[in-house]
Write a protein that binds this DNA or RNA. Structure first.
Lengths: 339, 339
DNA sequence: GTGAAAGCGCTAACAT
DNA sequence: ATGTTAGCGCTTTCAC
C-alpha cells in the first residue's frame, strides 16, 4: 500500500490559492488567470496530483461514462463493433464500462448494476433488451442506444435510438446475387426468432427471391452461435432436395456453415454450394473468403458516438433510427454470376 | 429529463430510520435488525431507490472496478480473453472499464485516464506496458495484472503479476509435431520483437527443432496483425528453398498465413505445407481447422480474477508469475505424423 | 478573476 | 442494533 493520493485541496494550499482556483484550472473552458494557472499546475506537478474523476462525477452529476452491453464476443463482428465503439467514445472523451450479458444470463441484473454506477448512456450492442429495462432507463432518464438491433421502443421516445445496417436491402441484394449465379434452391439460417435484424434480412431475402420468381428458402435457426449454425446446416444439407445456396443471417453462422459443408459433407464451397453471410466481419477474409453484405462497423460506431454526444447535450435527436449503408462483398464462398 | 433519483437519505426519512441503517441494509454482511431492514427495503422499493455506486466508491475509497486495457480486438483470442475476463470479474462482483489502446496509440494517455477513475486494479491484456506507466501504478499503489504478456517488472514487485500460457513448451511441442510429420525445412512468424510471449515461443520452437537435429527456421515478423502476417508469409513462401512447415506466434497470424498460402500460392494447406498457430482461438475451428497449441482463456481469466481478489484483499500473492497449461490441438492445417 | 461555503450521495467511526 | 457526526474529493453558486 502507498500513501493516499494528493488531493485538490493540497494543491490549493501548496499553490497558495483557493480550491476553486485549482478546480477551474482543471476544468476546460473555465476562466483562470494565466498566473494562477501556472502556480496551480506547478504545485500539482510537484506533488503528483491527479484529479479524482469519481469525486468529479459525483459532484457534477454526470460520469462521462457510457455502459456498453454485449451478449458475447464469439462473433468477430461484435468484437469489431465494440472496439470501434470504445475507440470512438474515447475520442470524444467518454469512458466505457463493459458488461457481458452472456446468452441467457441475467441480463437485467447486470444492466441494473451498471446503471447504479451512474452511466450517462446505455449502449446495447447486439443485445435484446428486455422491456423492463427499457422502461427502467426511460424512468431514470438514461438514454439507450441500440446498435445492430432494435426494439419496438425505438423512435417512440427520443431517448431510445438505434443504429442499424441495411438489413432488408442486404437480403434482397444477396437474393439477386445468388439468383444471377444460377441457383434455384435456397436455404436461410436465421439468428433468433425475435431479433429484428435477422427477421429483416430474411424478409429481404424472401422478397428478392420472389421477385425473380424463385421459390422461398428452407429456414432453420442457428441462434447466432457457431454450434447452433452447425446444427442448422446439417439439417439443411440433409434435406432430400439439398439446396445449393445458403444465406446466413450473419457471418459468424456462415463460417460454421462452411465448416460443416466442407468437412462433414465434402462439399466444395463456392462450387457445389454457395454460402453467403452478413456483416463483412473480419473473419470473412480468412482463406478463400466469405461473400457477405457489409455493415460498416466504424461508421456505425461514429454514428453512435455522434448521437451520444447529442443526447448528452440534451438535444433531442432528429429521429430515432439510423440506417447505415452496406454493399455486397463477393468472395470465394459463392459461385459468381453465370459464365 | 426526469426527476433526480431518490437518495439514501430520502429512504431513511421515509422509513423513519437513520441514514446509517439504510446504508447497512444495502451493505452485505452488516448487522441490521430484520424489522429495520424490512422497513428500509419497503421504503426503498416504494420510491424506487437505487444505491449510487459513485458515491459509495468515493466514500469507501474503493471503486470495485478494474480497468482492462486491450490493444485491439481483431484477434479473436484477445476478444475471447476479454469476454472471459469480464465475465469472471462480474461473477466476483467487480465491474470493468474498457480501454482500447490501439497499436501505436497514446497508450499512456488512455491509461492515465482510467487511473483517474480510481480503478482498483489495472489489467493489461496483450498490451506492452511502457515502464513509465508501470512505475506510475506502483507509485499510486494500483496493482497491475498482465495477461498473456510480461514485462521485466513482474515478480519484482508483488503488485505486478502476470498470467501466461506455456509458451516455451508450446514451441517445443510444435517443433516435435512438425518433425514427426516429416518436415525438414521451417519458418517462424514472430509477433513483435519486444513481446515476451513471441520470443518464448520462438525459443521453444528453435530448441525443439535443434533437439531433433533439424535446422533453425527462417524468421519473419508479422507484428501480430493480419496484414503484417500476410506480408511475412509472402516473403517466406518466396524464399528459394521454400519451407514446408510454418509456425506462427499466434493463430491470428496463422490464419493470415493460410490465406496467403492458399489464395496467392495455390498451396494445399495441410498437404503441401503445414501451418501451425498458437492460442487455439475460436477461429481455429473454422473450415478444415488450424493446428494450434492452446491457451485456455477461461482458465487464464479465472486465475486473473482469483489473483485480483487476493490483491484487493491486501494479500501478497505467493508469486508473480502464473503459467497455465496448454496442449496441441491437431487439425487440418498440419500434415499428421508420417504415415 | 478569485475565494468562501454549501453541497453531490454515501460510509464509517464512535457513542449509545 | 441504531443514530450522530464527520468526512470522501470535487464543483459551483454567490459575493467580492
Amino acid at each position: 500500500m502507498t500513501r493516499r493520493s494528493p488531493t485538490l485541496n493540497e494543491v490549493a494550499r501548496l499553490a497558495g490559492v483557493s480550491p476553486s482556483a485549482v478546480s477551474r484550472t482543471f476544468t476546460v473552458g473555465a476562466s483562470v488567470a494565466d498566473k494562477t494557472r501556472a502556480k496551480v499546475l506547478q504545485a500539482a506537478e510537484l506533488i503528483g496530483y491527479r484529479p479524482n474523476l469519481l469525486a468529479r462525477s459525483l459532484s457534477r452529476q454526470r460520469s462521462g461514462t457510457v455502459g456498453i452491453a454485449v451478449t458475447r464476443l464469439e462473433n468477430s463482428f461484435n468484437s469489431l463493433l465494440l472496439e470501434e465503439l470504445a475507440t470512438a467514445l474515447q475520442r470524444v472523451g467518454l469512458g466505457c464500462r463493459l458488461i457481458v450479458t452472456g446468452d441467457r444470463d441475467a441480463v437485467d441484473v447486470r444492466i441494473e448494476e451498471v446503471l447504479q454506477h451512474q452511466i450517462d448512456v446505455l449502449v446495447l450492442c447486439a443485445v435484446n433488451l428486455s422491456s423492463r429495462i427499457e422502461e427502467e432507463c426511460a424512468a431514470i432518464g438514461v438514454p439507450v442506444v441500440m446498435v445492430n438491433r432494435i426494439t419496438p421502443g425505438v423512435g417512440r421516445s427520443a431517448r431510445a435510438i438505434a443504429i442499424v445496417g441495411s438489413n432488408e436491402e442486404g437480403g434482397r441484394v444477396v437474393a439477386d446475387h445468388l439468383a444471377e449465379a444460377g441457383h434455384r434452391s435456397f436455404a436461410f439460417i436465421a439468428g433468433s426468432a425475435d431479433a429484428s435484424n435477422s427477421r429483416e434480412r430474411e424478409a429481404g431475402f424472401i422478397a428478392g427471391l420472389a421477385k425473380s420468381g424463385l421459390p422461398a428458402p428452407i429456414v432453420e435457426t442457428g441462434h447466432y452461435t457457431f454450434n447452433g449454425a452447425m446444427d442448422a446446416t446439417r439439417t439443411i444439407l440433409n434435406t432430400v432436395n439439398r439446396p445449393d445456396a445458403l444465406f446466413c443471417a450473419n457471418d459468424h453462422m456462415a463460417l460454421a456453415a462452411i465448416t460443416v459443408a466442407q468437412t462433414e459433407f465434402g462439399l466444395s464451397v463456392g462450387k457445389d454450394i454457395s454460402i453467403v453471410g452478413f456483416d463483412d466481419s473480419p473473419a470473412a477474409r480468412f482463406g478463400a473468403g466469405l461473400t457477405s453484405f457489409s455493415q460498416p462497423a466504424s461508421l456505425m460506431a461514429e454514428e453512435a458516438a455522434r448521437n451520444i454526444i447529442a443526447l448528452l447535450g440534451g438535444n433531442r435527436t432528429e429521429d430515432g433510427l439510423f440506417v447505415v449503408p452496406g454493399s455486397l462483398k463477393i468472395r470465394g464462398s459463392s459461385r459468381p454470376a453465370n459464365p
